[in-house]
Design a protein around this nucleic acid. Structure first.
Length: 565
RNA sequence: GCACCCAUAGCUCAGCUGGAUAGAGCAUCGCCCUUCUAAGGCGAGGGUCUUAGGUUCGAAUCCUAAUGGGUGUACCA
C-alpha cells in the first residue's frame, strides 16, 4: 500500500480545487501523535510565492480538502502546519486487505527493471573473513528487497580466482595429490604452507611460476587443477552462505577469470575511442580533473582490476541488460569505482541511462574502535565468527529443558545468525560500526531477538486461540490507530530503503512497529476475560498482520523467525 | 600535498525530500506479574547536535571555512 501517495493525492486535489497552481510537497509522518497521523508542511513554503500568510494558505487548502474517505480530520497548527488524521474505517479496511494478501498489499513494480547486484566477492585463495560479512549480507538484503518489489535481480558474485598466487597454490595442490582436498579445508593454512614451500624450495617456486604462465596460456591440465582448486574453495564459501542464510549460488558466480578473454578488446576499444594514453609504459585513461589516471594495462602487458571491472560493466549493461548496477563494496574503494564508472560511461561501454552505484559500507570495528582482528592480530574467519554466534546464542536460551536438543540447536542457529546479521544491517551502512556480542544478543533495544520475541509472542496467542477469525478490524483507540497506520507504511518504507539501498531503514521501521505492538499488547488485552468478541477478533487481526509484517521484513533481511522462543 | 567520509546524551546509535519542545537502547533511579511469554511495559534524570559564519519564515539536516578523527592516493584486488 503506497500510503503516502494516497494522501498526497488528496492534498493535490485540494490544491487544484483551491486554484493553487503549485506542485505540493509530499506529506510526512507526524513527528508526534498529537499532530495526527501525517502532516503537510507545504503551506509555509508557499507563503512567499503566493504572497499570503501561511496560515491563510493552510486554511485555503483545508477548505478544499476532501474529508470523506482518506483523511477524516485536518487542523492548522503553529505557523501553518496541517495535521492530518486518517479515517479509521479506511485504515481498518486496508489492514484487513493487507492481512489477507500474500504480499501484504505491497505492489509489484509496474515497470520492473533489470538490476545487477554485485556482492560478496570472496578471494578464492583465502578463507572468507569478517571483512566479507558486510558485503555479503547487505548485498543479499538489497537483492531480496528489489526482488520482492518486483525488479528482475541478477545476483553477481565476482569471485577472485585469478592472479599470480594461484600458480603457487596449484603447484602445491598437485604436490599434495589426492590429499589436497583434505588440507584445503583450512585455506589459510594451505596458503601459508604453499607460501612456505615457495620461499624455501627454488624448484617449487619455479614450478609455481611456470603454472602461472601455463594457466594464463590455457594449458588444459593446469586449468583442470586450477578448476579443482576453485571448486573446493567455492565449496567453503557456500558453506558460509548456507550458514548465513544468503541466497548466492554457483549460478551467480561470474568470476574474474570469466572476463579474461574480453580484456584485450577493452583496451582496443578504449584505444579506438582515443581515450587511451601511454604513461611510464602503462596504458592509461586520464580523466578530466583527475590527477591520477586509471591504469588499464601494466607496462609488462598485464591487466588490472580496473580492466576487469570495465569488462564486467559492459557485460552487465549490454549482455545482461541491466539498468541499475549496484556494487556492494567497502567504502575504501570509492575512488576506484568513481573512476571506473566514469571511464565506462565516457567510453560508451555503458549507456547514459544505466545507473551505476557503489553501495559503500564502513568497516567493522572491535569494542575499542579498532578494526576487528583476532587477539594475535590475524583476520577473523567468518565461519568461526558464525559458529561462535551460535554457541553464544545457545547459552543465552532460557528454559532449555523445554526443548529437545535438536530444537535448541535450530533455535540457536536462527537466533545467533540473526543477531549477527541484524546488528550489521541495523547500522547506517556508510558508517563504521562496533561489533559487540552482548549488545547484538540482547533482547533489549533494536535487535533481532526483540523482533523474534515479538513474533513468537503473537504466535503464542494464536496457539492459544486456535480457531477461525471472523469479522473485521475495528480501530478502538489512538494506539490501535497508530499501530494500523504503522502497518500500512510498510511499502513506503521498502520503496525508500530500495532507493537508498539502506537496510537500516527497514530495521528502524521494524523496531518502531514492534515497540508500538508491545505497547498495544500491554494495554489492549486480546484473549483475556472480559474482551468482547468483536474487539477480540479485531485485535487478533492487528496482531496477525503485525506478525506477518515482521516476518516479511526479516525475510528480506535474510533473518528467520521462530514460533516459540 | 590533494580527494573522499565522519563528528548528535556517559556508551552504542536513529533522525528520510529543511519543519513544531532533537529521539531510541544501554547504563543510573523509581513503578507494574493470581490475568494472552516480565526475554515485557510505564516513568525520571541526562544535550551549546564539534566550532564559526552563511542561505531560509524555519537548519542536526543545505552552503563555506576551521578543528578533530578515519580512509584513499600510478601499474595488488
Amino acid at each position: 500500500m503506497k500510503l503516502k501517495s494516497q494522501i498526497n493525492h488528496v492534498i493535490k486535489e485540494a490544491f487544484s480545487k483551491a486554484n493553487i497552481d503549485e506542485e505540493p510537497i509530499s506529506v510526512s509522518e507526524s513527528t508526534k501523535p498529537e499532530f495526527g497521523d501525517y502532516q503537510f508542511n507545504g503551506a509555509m513554503a508557499l507563503s512567499k510565492k503566493l504572497r499570503k500568510n501561511p496560515r491563510e494558505i493552510a486554511q485555503q487548502i483545508i477548505d478544499n480538502l476532501d474529508l470523506t474517505h482518506v483523511i477524516v480530520k485536518a487542523e492548522i497548527a503553529g505557523p501553518g502546519f496541517i495535521n492530518l488524521w486518517l479515517d479509521p474505517l479506511w485504515v481498518a479496511s486496508l489492514c484487513e486487505t493487507a492481512r489477507n494478501d500474500e504480499r501484504l498489499s505491497v505492489a509489484k513494480r509496474e515497470s520492473p527493471i533489470k538490476v545487477v547486484v554485485d556482492y560478496s566477492g570472496p578471494n578464492m585463495a583465502k578463507q572468507m573473513h569478517v571483512g566479507h560479512l558486510r558485503s555479503t549480507i547487505i548485498g543479499d538484503t538489497l537483492a531480496n528487497l528489489l526482488t520482492f518489489l518486483g525488479d528482475e535481480v541478477i545476483r553477481q558474485n565476482h569471485i577472485g580466482d585469478w592472479g599470480t598466487q594461484f600458480g603457487m597454490l596449484i603447484a602445491y595442490l598437485e604436490e599434495k595429490g589426492e590429499d589436497g582436498s583434505v588440507s584445503l579445508k583450512d585455506l589459510e593454512q594451505f596458503y601459508k604452507d604453499a607460501k612456505g614451500r615457495f620461499d624455501a624450495d627454488e624448484d617449487f617456486a619455479n614450478k609455481a611460476r611456470e603454472y602461472v604462465v601455463k594457466i594464463q596460456s590455457g594449458d588444459a591440465q593446469c586449468l583442470e587443477l586450477w578448476q579443482k582448486f576453485i571448486d573446493i574453495s567455492l565449496g567453503h564459501c557456500e558453506e558460509v552462505y548456507d550458514k548465513l542464510n544468503v541466497k548466492l549460488t554457483r549460478d551467480d558466480v561470474r568470476a574474474e577469470s570469466f572476463y579474461n578473454d574480453d580484456l584485450g578488446s577493452v583496451i582496443k576499444d578504449l584505444e579506438t575511442k582515443g581515450t587511451l594514453q601511454e604513461s611510464d609504459g602503462a596504458q592509461c585513461v586520464f580523466l578530466e580533473g583527475d590527477e591520477i589516471p586509471v591504469i588499464v594495462q601494466k607496462g609488462d602487458g598485464g591487466y588490472l582490476y580496473a580492466t576487469t571491472d570495465l569488462s564486467a560493466l559492459r557485460y552487465r549493461a549490454n549482455t545482461l541488460g541491466a539498468k541499475r548496477i549496484s556494487y556492494v563494496v567497502d567504502a575504501r574503494q570509492g575512488g576506484h569505482f568513481k573512476q571506473v564508472f566514469r571511464v565506462a560511461k565516457e567510453a560508451g561501454f555503458v549507456a547514459e541511462d544505466v545507473k551505476l552505484e557503489h553501495i559503500a559500507f564502513g568497516t567493522m570495528m572491535d569494542k575499542g574502535g579498532k578494526p576487528f582482528k583476532t587477539r594475535d592480530g590475524g583476520t577473523v574467519k567468518l565461519i568461526d565468527l558464525l559458529d561462535e554466534a551460535v554457541v553464544k546464542a545457545k547459552a543465552a536460551i532460557k528454559d532449555k529443558d523445554e526443548y529437545s536438543e535438536l530444537e535448541v540447536e535450530d533455535l540457536a542457529k536462527i537466533i545467533g545468525i540473526g543477531a549477527v546479521k541484524y546488528a550489521d544491517l541495523s547500522i547506517n551502512r556508510e558508517s563504521n560500526y562496533i561489533f559487540n556480542w552482548d549488545k547484538m544478543l540482547s533482547f533489549e533495544g533494536n535487535t533481532s531477538l526483540y523482533m523474534q520475541y515479538a513474533y513468537a509472542r503473537i504466535q503464542s496467542i494464536f496457539r492459544r486461540f486456535d480457531a477461525d477469525i471472523k469479522g473485521g478490524i475495528i480501530i478502538g483507540d489512538a494506539l490501535e490507530q497508530r499501530l494500523a497506520v504503522m502497518l500500512l507504511r510498510f511499502e513506503d518504507v521498502l520503496e525508500r530503503a530500495a532507493l537508498d539501498a539502506a537496510p537500516n531503514q527497514i530495521t528502524t521501521y521494524l523496531y518502531d512497529l514492534v515497540t508500538l505492538f508491545m505497547r498495544f499488547y500491554e494495554q489492549n488485552p486480546i484473549l483475556k476475560e472480559g474482551v468482547d468478541e468483536a474487539t477480540k477478533m479485531s485485535r487478533l487481526q492487528l496482531a496477525d498482520l503485525t506478525a506477518k509484517t515482521i516476518k516479511q521484513g526479516l525475510d528480506i533481511l535474510g533473518i528467520q523467525v521462530v514460533n516459540r522462543l
